[in-house]
Amino acid sequence: MAFLEVKDLKVHFPIKGGILNRTIDHVRAVDGVTFEVEQGKTYGLVGESGSGKTTTGRAVIGLNHVTSGKVFYEGTDITKKQSKTKALRKDIQMIFQDPYSSLNPRKRVLDVIAEPLRNFEKLSKQEEKKRVQELLELVGLSPEAIVKYPHEFSGGQRQRIGVARAIALRPKLIIADEPVSALDVSVQAQVLNFMQDIQQELGLTYLFISHDLGIVKHMCDDIAIMYRGRYVEQGTRDDIFNNPQHIYTKRLVSAIPDINPRNREKQFHFREEVQREFEHSYDDYFDNEGLAYGLQPISGSHYVALPEKG
């Protein structure tokens, strides 16, 4: 039994149109995604914007309506809202992409972080305040911050408040939706390292959504590449970065900048080569509609979307 298991998940949004404004088609934001996440690990979902990675994360936590497929958490089916018990809700939390809109501008930090506590734990005012202050300290903010409003903080600090709120209930699984993409590069590393620290401390599992391969390489144990709602390749960090099989993954990996200037020439040639291969063999990797094929196993951990042989 896997910790988190997603089976053939599909999330389709209707497109309205025509004279009567009927549903004429669907956007297949997530179109048949299957994966498992082990406890204590970080599972990375990578893809360009519109690839369905965020929708996948939101569908797991129940913010998006699941068209078909199943989500299991510790063996329990949590696809339907009704089947989620209070304890389950408590176990799965989310960190949002935009630290500006994810905090209610009218609430003081105390109220922001205490919101989950008030929903699940009956604490006295004193205990609540103490817990919030502890949490603030944990995320590296001053406990005096509780009386301030979100706009009095910088983006990085706000994201830490968001993290404090997400870990307030001691969850087991956190869905981190591009947690640092709205932040300055200088702050990104701080927040990421901090996230790794609390992962160790609290034994967290992350479903880490990002478009930045560099960050994913730094953070994740297992990685999946998404393209237009489907998986393109899935494997361990090693599989993806050192042995990319799909042409789309190869392009992405080749695009990671290398800091060492001596490798510049090599890198440039490598990129050109990949680009040639991409143009040349595009049809081998994508079907008529330009979508990825079904996943085929390469090794025990490594899966690639390739047309079925024969």
Partner: peptide, 22 residues
């Protein structure tokens, strides 16, 4: 559609609570 409302949902607040407090 803003994230703070979505966040409230994931934090387990009921609709009534979200409407009145958020």
């Amino acid at each position: 559609e803003l994230d703070y409302i979505q966040a409230s949902k994931t934090l387990g607040s009921s609709h009534t609570k979200i409407i009145f407090t958020q």
